[in-house]
């Protein structure tokens, strides 16, 4: 065993690195949140229709895929702001690096746009298609042709959207999960956790878009299932840290007594998961009417999860080991 460490003095004071790594600010959690949200919308909407065979009936669910395009674009905007060498952003698209989740993500995002546009245009009813094509000027003619083609290919489009959504949701977690030098991220659960969180936030946003009663009932079930899975995955993640090596124990401590404990338990577990789960269950038993509060709390929880993990991960590195 090494003798007890008394003192370490280093003359390294690199900005963004010392005393602890802090290279990713608000931009990355914002992107991970919006990407997860879009992934959730893709998975939930597609799976709902593949299961029921019924097209979206409310205005909110019809326009949701196009809203997801806007969310992904906002997220990519945040990601662009995070790049230190912005003029080289095109370099993502001159190569594919199979070991880099960020490279996978860059290409998945290129797939997200066409599938969301196909699903989104095909979702619209006749009046909405006319309304949109009138506003798109010279591109207006495309709306009719693309949506007609997507109507014919409806099921393949839905399957592709769902699969791409799963890829997008998992990749946002793997982006952190593969960076094992950061103990807080070094968990195989990160990919499924971010996907489950994306599905619950996606369902929550759809619930805020005034779905009709039938859609509402299905969405609450999706939201509830995703929250329950997320709680299980968080428990698995923490148990994994607790039963791991010294590095894992550092990560466990951050959430169980360390600096991030009140934020994690207060904002993510209680506010973002337990409270909306209880409200959904009360709604099932008809003890409480549906309100916007539950979905809003889920969205707050989803954003908090990413913000806290991005921050906590950066401060947990090998420098913390004795």
């Amino acid at each position: 065993m090494k003798p007890e460490l008394i003192e370490v003095v280093s003359n390294r004071t690199n900005p963004g690195i010392d005393p602890v790594v802090h290279v990713w600010g608000w931009e990355v959690p914002v992107y991970l949140f919006l990407g997860g949200l879009a992934a959730g919308i893709m998975v939930v909407l597609s799976a709902m229709e593949l299961r029921s065979g019924e097209r979206p009936t409310s205005r909110g669910t019809r326009w949701a895929p196009l809203a997801a395009v806007a969310l992904v674009s906002l997220g990519m905007g945040a990601l662009f702001l995070d790049l230190a060498h912005k003029l080289h952003v095109w370099r993502f698209y001159t190569t594919f690096q199979p070991t880099s989740p960020m490279s996978w993500g860059a290409w998945i995002l290129m797939l997200v746009y066409p599938v969301l546009l196909l699903q989104g245009l095909s979702n619209l009813n006749g009046r909405e298609r006319t309304w949109l094509s009138e506003r798109l000027g010279p591109l207006g003619g495309l709306v009719g042709r693309v949506s007609a083609w997507a109507d014919e290919q409806r099921r393949p489009v839905l399957w592709t959207t769902a699969a791409t959504g799963v890829g997008l949701g998992i990749y946002t977690g793997l982006l952190l999960g593969t960076l094992s030098a950061r103990f807080q991220w070094n968990s195989a659960v990160m990919g499924p956790l971010f996907l489950a969180s994306g599905v619950s936030t996606g369902a929550a946003l759809l619930l805020l878009l005034r779905p009709d009663a039938k859609e509402h009932a299905v969405l609450v079930r999706w939201d509830t299932a995703a929250i329950a899975i997320e709680l299980v995955l968080l428990a698995v993640m923490i148990l994994g840290f607790l039963t791991g090596d010294q590095a894992d124990l550092v990560a466990a401590n951050q959430l169980l007594g360390g600096a991030f404990t009140p934020y994690f338990w207060g904002l993510v577990v209680l506010t973002g998961l337990a409270a909306p789960l209880a409200m959904n269950l009360a709604e099932f038993k008809r003890r409480m009417p549906a309100t916007a509060l539950g979905p809003v709390l889920v969205l707050i929880g989803g954003f908090s999860l990413r913000t806290i993990l991005v921050a906590a991960g950066q401060v947990t590195g090998y420098g913390l080991l004795p």
């Binding site: 900005p15 690195i17 790049l83 060498h85 912005k86 080289h88 370099r91 950066q314 420098g319």
Partner: peptide, 26 residues
């Protein structure tokens, strides 16, 4: 010339040996 300054490599290094140069690349 290929670096976008995404900082994934900075976060991946167990030794914190990298930094972002003021010109944007790692």
């Amino acid at each position: 010339d290929k670096c976008t300054g995404c900082k994934a490599c900075v976060a991946s290094c167990p030794y914190d040996a990298r930094y972002v140069h003021p010109e944007g690349y790692v």
